[in-house]
C-alpha cells in the first residue's frame, strides 16, 4: 500500500495537517508512526485505513480487508459485547457460522469472555479498547491500522498486541501502529515513520537498527555447543555471562501498571528513540540500552535472533531453562548468552 503525494486538510481554508506524504508499506511489514501529540499521527493512520480521503494525492494498493483500531473505541452504543462483535463480523461479510467462530476466537483470546453479555457503555476503557481490537481482527486483515493500541490496556493485554501484530505479519498482512509511550520497542524490526510539521519522513534503518538483540538462556553444560550452533547460523554472539539476574528496570515507568509484571517480550532499537518522540522520563523503554535488554522467560527462544518478528508469538517453544522473571533465579541459574 502506498500514499502518493498525499495532502490533507480538514477544512477548505484550514491549515494543512499533512503535506506531501509519500510512504509505502508492503505485505509482512510493520511501520511505527511516531510524533508528538496533535502532529497528525492519527490523521496519517486514518488516511491509510481509508477513513479519510486525501485532499490531494492518492492512496493506492490498499488491501481489501482493512482492520482499524481507533484511538478510542466508540462505546456509546446500545449493544452487548457479543452482539456488537457478531454484528461487525457480519458487516465485514463473514457468513453466520464463520462470524460466530471469529467472535468466539477473539473474545476468548482477548479475555472478553466474561464481558460478552455486558453492554458496551458499561465497559472500562481498557476492556472497550479490547473490543476495538477484536472488531478489527474478526476478518483477517490485509492491513491492520492500530492507533495507540496500548492505551488503557492491562499488562497481559499489552503483551498480546505485539503477538497479534506478529500473527497478522506472518499471514502476509501489513501493520501500521502509532505510539507515543515507547511501547513499540516491543516491535523489533519495525520501520519508523515520523510525523512532524505536517510532513512524514521515514527514518532509514541503519545497520545497527536493522538487527535486534535477543537474550536467551542455555544450560551451562551446553553453552559451547549452543554458541557454536548460533555462530554457524550466522549470528553474532555478543557476550556470555554466567548468571541470570537480569539488569534492573526491565520495564521502567511508575505510571505503567505493567511495572511489576513479567515481561515476556523485549527488544530494542539501536537507533534509539526518535527525537520527536523522546520518551518522558520513566516511560517504558526510555532507559534501556540495547545490550542490556533482558528476555526474561521469553517464549520464542528457539528462534534465531534476526528472525524474531514479535517475540512471544504463539507456537514458540518456551524453554524450561529460561530465566523466569526479573529478579528471578539468582546465581545458580543457567548461563545466559547474548546473541546479536
Amino acid at each position: 500500500m502506498r500514499l502518493e503525494d498525499v495532502w490533507l486538510r480538514y477544512h477548505r481554508r484550514g491549515p494543512w495537517v499533512l503535506r506531501q506524504a509519500d510512504v509505502a508499506i508492503g505485505p509482512g511489514e510493520v511501520a511505527v508512526v511516531l510524533g508528538r501529540n496533535g502532529v497528525g499521527k492519527s490523521t496519517l493512520l486514518q488516511l491509510a485505513a481509508g477513513v479519510l480521503r486525501p485532499t490531494r494525492g492518492r492512496v493506492v494498493d490498499r488491501p481489501a480487508a482493512v482492520g482499524w483500531v481507533p484511538e478510542r473505541f466508540p462505546a456509546d452504543q446500545p449493544f452487548t459485547v457479543g452482539a456488537y462483535l457478531a454484528a461487525m463480523a457480519r458487516v465485514a461479510g463473514l457468513p453466520g457460522a464463520e462470524a460466530d467462530r471469529a467472535v468466539r476466537r477473539w473474545v476468548d483470546r482477548l479475555g472478553l469472555a466474561r464481558f460478552r453479555d455486558v453492554r458496551l457503555p458499561q465497559l472500562s476503557k481498557g476492556t472497550a479498547q479490547k473490543v476495538g481490537l477484536a472488531q478489527a481482527l474478526l476478518r483477517p486483515p490485509g492491513l491492520l491500522v492500530l492507533d495507540e493500541p496500548w492505551e488503557g490496556l492491562d499488562a497481559a493485554a499489552r503483551d498480546l498486541v505485539p503477538e497479534v501484530i506478529g500473527e497478522v505479519l506472518a499471514e502476509g498482512g501489513a501493520v501500521l501502529v502509532s505510539d507515543h509511550r515507547g511501547e513499540t520497542v516491543r516491535l523489533p524490526g519495525a520501520r519508523h515513520w515520523s510525523v512532524a510539521d505536517g510532513t512524514v519522513t521515514e527514518a532509514t534503518p541503519t545497520g545497527a537498527a536493522a538487527t535486534v538483540v535477543v537474550e536467551l538462556s542455555v544450560p551451562a553444560a551446553a553453552v559451547s555447543a549452543a554458541v557454536a550452533r548460533l555462530r554457524a547460523d550466522g549470528h553474532h554472539v555478543l557476550r556470555i555471562r554466567d548468571h541470570a539476574v537480569p539488569p534492573p528496570a526491565t520495564r521502567p515507568g511508575s505510571d505503567s501498571p505493567s511495572t511489576a509484571a513479567p515481561a515476556p517480550v523485549s527488544g530494542a532499537d539501536h537507533s534509539g528513540p526518535d527525537p520527536d518522540e523522546a520518551p518522558v522520563p520513566g516511560a517504558p523503554g526510555s532507559d534501556r540500552s540495547p545490550d542490556e535488554v533482558p528476555v526474561p522467560g521469553a517464549p520464542g527462544s528457539d528462534r534465531s535472533p534476526d528472525e524474531v518478528p514479535v517475540p512471544g508469538a504463539p507456537g514458540s517453544d518456551h524453554s524450561s531453562d529460561a530465566v523466569p522473571v526479573p529478579g528471578g533465579s539468582g546465581r545458580s541459574g543457567p548461563a545466559s548468552e547474548v546473541a546479536r
Binding site: Q46, A49, G50, V51, V66, G67, W68, P70, R72, F73, P74, D76, Q77, M88, V91, A92, G93, Q135, R139
Partner: peptide, 12 residues
C-alpha cells in the same frame, strides 16, 4: 457515534 460510522466505512 462518529467513530463507529468511520469503522463501518473502513469495513465496507
Amino acid at each position: 457515534p462518529d467513530v463507529q460510522r468511520r469503522l463501518a466505512r473502513v469495513v465496507v
